[in-house]
Design a protein around this nucleic acid. Structure first.
Length: 497
RNA sequence: GGGCCUGUAACUCAGUGGUAGAGUAUCUGCCUUUUAAGCAGAGAGUCGAUGGUUCGAAUCCAUCCAGGCUCACCA
């Protein structure tokens, strides 16, 4: 007999005892009169009024001593101590109290008072079981030493925390906090965009063709139609169809899927915000990003700056703006503005940057940027004017056809957003996608595919448009001081057990 | 994918060739104001898996599985 089964067996025995007493361990209803935080907030009022209160929650500590016992229960609002005395709850009810286990959901009826040691508590008049637990919860204890909370036997196994997230949420308050902040961020994005008259939409997850980013897709199959479908890798191409359709400001916050490696910053499914605004360009979008992120910082933390590990990040406007080529030149002294492929290749080779035969100058410029510049961009920075070669959906800069009106947002050395003045010239867009198809034929599995339906939409006419994509998970990491994406996704992808 | 590290009781961890350990949790007894309650006692483990070396393996070796950190690349 395995140990865990013994522990479960003991709890099942208690269940049987309750049955023998004709008491349901899983009653349909309870009678909560107050949330625990309400009591804690105005303790003296509740003590003075001596009103009967009914609180419910999960049992997380038990100190029984003969005919009296103390326990703690918590609901989502807070935690409180319960005092149970045999004389006061009756002998029968005390028997039920003795069948309580850590992890059980219980209801306590009683009045508020202060114990001899001065702790605000509920003096039970009646205890009721609301939901019996069968598996023992890991035991975490806290002690206050010199005003600081010390934790014992913390539930800290990272794999278990991810696989059994409900335990993590239950036992690690910081983890719960992270997901509350995540929810708040998403909510505040919606509030911010609503104020600016954006319309939230939903576009297909299952797509006959995928596009809008450089990535490999997941493939699935529709039985009735007997066709393969792709899980979207981006929201872009459908949202632009809506711009064509006369929706001037649209956004979607949704999961996208990329069939690529998993690591600290990559989960196969992740959440993107994409928005498109007609009659706007990438300069307008830069201002929008500044306003949005500052709004989030203020709404979530009531501050214009945050701490991320050792760094203090300030979101105060305006953020630094610099072109990719400028930044490379400033950091390395190398001038790539002539797009001289041989010269750029040589620079890469001299600096141990890998050069594949098929890549062009634009791709290499990006590699140089990533290697030399990215890690230096700690404070929020708009890196502008990306090479056209690596930006097939962005409009070129009128004054330099090698470049596009595109920017990425960098904070703390990481990319948080990607935006451009959208390419709305259907003939130019066709050329760009055809170039992508050639790359694909040369073996680039991440190159775009040609989406005739999207091109047809552009042929009907798309207004000048600014578009933006922001990775929500990474933004949440930034705001919650986490370095692993698994910490900000409730149920991250794991290998099968 | 490369390098480094980890896997022992429900939880947190000791244990580096000689009978598998501690604290917490659980159970039993005592205890009517405790708070990491206390005291006394008990039960609880395929030492990640499989092979090998050895008289003898949690420990050494090999392979595999799972995980973490880190480097390179995709958001």
């Amino acid at each position: 007999m395995e140990n865990i089964n013994q522990l479960i067996g003991i709890k099942k025995q208690k269940l049987k005892k309750l049955q023998a007493m004709e008491i349901s361990a899983y009653p349909n209803r309870c009678q909560r009169s107050h949330h625990i935080a309400e009591l804690n907030k105005t303790q003296e009022k509740f003590i003075a009024e001596k009103n009967r209160v009914v609180i419910v929650g999960r049992l997380d500590a038990m100190r029984r001593q003969g005919k009296v016992g103390f326990c703690n229960i918590n609901d989502e609002s807070g935690r409180i101590q319960i005092f149970v005395k045999k004389d006061e709850v009756s002998a029968e009810n005390y028997e039920i109290f003795k069948l309580f286990d850590l992890g059980d959901f219980v209801q306590i009826e009683g009045v508020c008072f202060r114990t001899q040691k001065g702790e605000f508590s509920v003096r039970a008049q009646k205890v009721t079981i609301l939901g019996k637990s069968l598996k023992p919860l890991p035991t975490v204890k806290e002690k206050i030493v010199a005003g600081k909370k010390q934790r014992f036997d913390e539930f800290s196994d990272i794999e278990l925390r991810y696989r059994k997230r409900y335990l993590d949420l239950l036992l690690n308050p910081e983890s719960k906090k992270t997901f509350q902040i995540r929810s708040k961020i998403v909510q505040e994005i919606r509030i911010f965009l609503k104020e600016r008259n954006f319309t939230e939409v939903e576009t297909p997850i299952l797509q006959p063709l995928y596009g809008g980013a450089q990535a490999r897709p997941f493939i699935t199959h529709h039985n009735t139609l007997d066709i393969d479908l792709y899980l979207r890798i981006a929201l872009e191409l459908y949202l632009k169809r809506l711009i064509v359709g006369g929706m001037e400001k649209v956004y979607e916050i949704a999961k996208t899927f990329r069939n690529e490696g998993m690591d600290r910053t990559h989960n196969p499914e992740f959440t993107m915000l994409e928005l498109y605004q007609a009659y706007a360009d990438y300069n307008d979008i830069m201002e929008l990003v500044e306003d949005l992120v500052l709004h989030l910082s203020q709404a979530v933390f009531d501050a214009d700056e945050i701490k991320f590990h050792e760094q203090t990040i300030s979101f105060q406007k305006p953020w630094r703006r610099a072109s990719m080529l400028e930044l490379i030149k400033a950091e390395t002294g190398f001038d790539a503005s002539d797009f001289d492929l041989e010269k750029i290749k040589k620079f890469c080779l001299d600096n141990e940057i890998e050069v594949e035969d098929t890549v062009g100058a634009g791709k290499l410029i990006e590699e140089i940027f990533q290697y030399f510049v990215e890690p230096t961009l700690i404070q929020p920075t708009f890196v502008t004017d990306f090479p056209k070669e690596i930006s097939p959906l962005a409009k070129e800069k009128p004054e330099d056809p090698q470049l596009t009106e595109r920017f990425e947002v960098f904070i703390n050395g990481n990319e948080y957003g990607n935006a451009f003045t959208e390419l709305n010239d259907p003939l130019e867009q066709r050329k760009r996608l055809e170039a992508q198809v050639k790359l694909r034929e040369m073996g680039d599995a991440e190159a775009n595919v040609l989406d005739e339906d999207f091109l047809e939409a552009l042929e009907y006419g798309m207004p000048p448009t600014g578009g933006l994509g922001i990775g929500i998970d990474r933004l949440v990491m930034l705001f919650t001081n986490n370095t692993s994406i698994k910490e900000v996704i409730l149920f991250p992808q794991m290998k099968p057990e």
